[in-house]
Design a protein around this nucleic acid. Sequence first.
RNA 1: GGGCGAAUAGCUCAGCUGGUUCAGAGCGCCUGCCUUACACGCAGGAUGUCGGGGGUUCGAAUCCCUCUUCGCCCACCA
Length: 912
Amino acid sequence: MPEFSLPPQYDASSVESALYQRWLEAGVFTAHVDSPKKPYVIVIPPPNVTAVLHMGHGLNDTLQDAIIRFERMRGRETLWLPGTDHAGIATQNVVEKLVAAEGKTRFDLGREAFVQRVADFVSQTGAVILDQLKTIGCSCDWSRTRYTLSPELSRAVREVFVRLWEEGLIYRGHRVIHWCPRCLTALSDEEAEFHETSGNLYYIHYPLADGSGQVTVATTRPETLLGDTAIIVHPKDPRGARYIGKRALLPLTGVEIPILADESVDQEFGTGFVKVTPAHDANDFEVGVRHHLEMPLVMTEDGKMGDSGKREAGSGKRVPPELEGLDRFEARKKIVKMLEAQGLLAKVESHQHAVRRCYRCDSIVEPRLSDQWFVKMKPLAEPALEAFRKGEVRFVPERWETTYVQWLEGIRDWNISRQLWWGHRIPVFTCTKCKHQWADRVDPTRCPKCGGPVTQDPDVLDTWFSSCLWPFSTLGWPDQTPDLEHFYPGHTLVTAPEILFFWVARMIMSGIHVMKKVPFHTVYLHGTVRDTKHRKMSKSLGNGIDPLDVVRLYGADALRWTAIAGVSIGSDLILDNEDLEATFAPGRGFANKIWNIGRFILSQLPDQVIPVETLPRSSLTVEDRWILSRSQTSITSVTEKMAAFRLDEAAKDAYEFVWGDLADWYIEASKPRLARNDATAQSILAYCFDIALRLLHPIVPFITEELWGKLPGRRNGELLAAAEWPAPNQGLIDSGAIDDPAVRRRPVDSGAWDDFARFVQRVIIGIRAIRATYQVPSNEVLKFDVVDGSKLPIQLLTNSRDLVRRLAGAELELGCSRGAKNIAGIGQTLGDGSLVKVPLEGKIDLDAGCKRVLKDMDRLEKQLAALSARLANQQFMSNAPPEVIDRERVKETTWTAQLGLLRQQRATLGCA
RNA sequence: GGGCGAAUAGCUCAGCUGGUUCAGAGCGCCUGCCUUACACGCAGGAUGUCGGGGGUUCGAAUCCCUCUUCGCCCACCA
């Protein structure tokens, strides 16, 4: 048999890429619209075109792959749709840096050349990450790879934009938005992230215009005072009464501003007087609107002090020459100094507050008055809330549901225009002659109203505008393609909670609005990958682990094992970047274990084995029936847990079955029978290993595929990736047992579980412990006796005589303990009151034995005392359910017997 | 300021709807084994007042309250 030539150590790197190639060639990942199977669809969270595979993807995509492989094996027509996101602002930043390295800016190149430059860059880097996904085994349908900026998807983006425009849901808003002075673009609320920052609160005197005194305001941003157009105070604030209606002089410039009453002031904070800068603060803007204030901009787009009326009407010069062109933070320092010099700085307090930063470049965002395109969100959010309330979409884990609901309930209009060049150009056109403005599906050559020349809006759309159409734009929408027909709506979305608002909620809204259906019914939100200090893994922190390194050193299955088994649902995945061995060796070890189990089994099996369900019951040994029983309960539990997205538990159950039960017990037990070519043992071994490989395949696809193809009857090129998920074998189970929740955790197959686990396994484990404790040489065969119980264990142990001799090195010999001097007992009773006694004359390490006996006695006495107290408790007896009381009674009996045995041992050993 | 999550063995974590899988797993540690599938292994073993304090209950790691410590999300106190 060629299997003998398999090396004892599994070398993942030598087989993985070939296996992946076989999957591709067999087309098992390709979804078919004409399939009679029910579809199951996952769309990938499209990685940015600039991204390379990192651990976050490792986790995200492994989870998706496990789910999709499971569903594929379960008989669904699975589509895992891959693709990339053009990532407007992020990609533009990357290329701008490249251009900067040449000493240029994008403005030097000009829009067209720069966009071409980015497109060239993307054509080189864009597909890299998708290729990397193959190294970790992702079973994506590569024939359907999509890209958010492709012509097809761009058409979908434009169609949605125009529809929203026609529905009146897109409007031009004049207000204070978040402006990134480095990226030179507006940002949405979500893109301007809060960061706790320690800053100062500056108290500044504003002299009254009539010279009758001064008012003092508190601000964290003194540089904005140049743009102040009012001071407000709460109408009920007694401190303000005598100032309301007066006018104050703006320090440094002497501009006169009114002091007004406004209820938005929090009287508890600061001085009660608030400076109002309508063009550089969202609240102040509201105040400005209420009081019809002027709204001068006092900073340029790149965050320098300067009168800037490019997009907005200002009100004359506000910035004094000595501050002109100064960076806003330099200006802050200088202004503070100037105020101090003039005696207008009352005091400075340190102050903790949240500052918004650009999510792409980390610059402090500048609130700035400007004109932007907005989407009215309320009409979109309502149906999304409704869909959730009707149960059309659910979140796993459930706790994200409130987050989702609260965000939608408090939703604000979405600023979708970006002053960038890389992205979908906003299809809004303006006639330069008659000023008619409209959105168009095709580029117009002239104004439809007056025939005049037209210009297109220079801005591009927020990159998330296209991302949120992903579940249907990727399927061919707006055309009614067969794909769209068949694969929309999808089923599960797997992503990180960080983009719940950016992406998930917006996909739900757009799906409902455009397609009239929620794009997926389950949102699985997994955790974040962090290091042992619980810091997010990131390139900038240098605490990352490169998944490609892990694949190279430990294999893709090891990476996947850690990502799946190492973390429970929705919690963070903590990885030790300084100890890769501790982090990934368990997965490699497991793959190696499977490999060697396979190596052994393959060396034992003939070309054909008997189907297990045709084996006559009477020919089965107790361990046969036990492992078959275990195989059935494993199928049930792994299936249930996979279906419930408890992938970690599913993985551990399958692990326990193949390693803990099949390898450690069944294989060891059946070696003598296999040596005699026992067809029953061969059949059972083949069956159980086949089940194990199938159950494990979604988690560790490579090693399982590699071995499955070598099993008898599978050597015809069939692929496990396309094989069926195991179902309970009706020929093996007691009818109804597997479906009855009441016995779900109970053994099937006539109590074989109990028979083997409680009597045979327990005796073997017990005798092994005795051998170790008393240092009995390994070549010495012990005798043991079973007393005080029913006939059952004696019968079972008699039947399993060879097994016990092999695995425990002991022979059952009834009556051998009678009159024996030194007797050890196994640490447990067998559940029916039986005690196992092992005579040890002349073989005893007395000290070790006594230590052991005394320790066991101590533990047992304490447990027994607590138990007796419970049974003596009147309230326990009357309140506890009868089966609990029964169990406690049985415990009391067996423990008492056990304690008796220990006392006997103590006496015969002569322990102190 | 609101909301959420976490705190269990040296480390990373399981323990679902309160009572034999209830104190667990993997790694690490100790002891003995190269028992021809596997030393990336086998067998045995040590280690925990289940964050503190209250409460509910016959019974709590598990439910409730509270405190402490971490983490995350949201939020227009300048």
